[in-house]
């Protein structure tokens, strides 16, 4: 199962990003293999529809869980439709590594 965590950087000690559509990076964590990849968010400077595009990307990546700070109504509808679990964390002082270690 793949989990996406929104991140402000491309390293495991980067801070967690509270934004979903306009997050700097996405950390893709695979809990079966333990692989951790970072993907740049192409939509972070989009004029509009960043949330929708990002949600589509999540579907493309085949993730089952997304961890972020908040989800807009359009992104939420899309993720709901594709049965992707959304998790909201409000603490922006955590680093990616801490979240991953909790998921293990």
């Amino acid at each position: 199962m793949k989990t996406v965590i929104t991140s402000t950087g491309d390293k495991v000690n980067s801070l967690f990003d509270l934004r979903f559509g306009r997050a700097e990076w996405f950390c893709v964590y695979n809990d079966e293999t333990g692989d951790i990849n970072f993907i740049n968010n192409d939509n972070k400077d989009a004029q509009g529809g960043a949330g929708t595009k990002t949600a589509e990307k999540m579907v493309e990546l085949g993730v089952t869980k997304v961890i972020s700070g908040d989800f807009g109504p359009k992104a939420k509808d899309l993720l709901d439709k594709f049965k992707i679990q959304m998790v909201i964390l409000k603490d922006d002082s955590t680093i990616i590594e801490e979240i991953i270690s909790k998921l293990k």
């Binding site: 709901d80 679990q85 959304m86 998790v87």
Partner: peptide, 8 residues
């Protein structure tokens, strides 16, 4: 842990 989440 105060996490909020949906259950598909």
């Amino acid at each position: 842990c105060n996490a909020r989440f949906t259950v598909p």
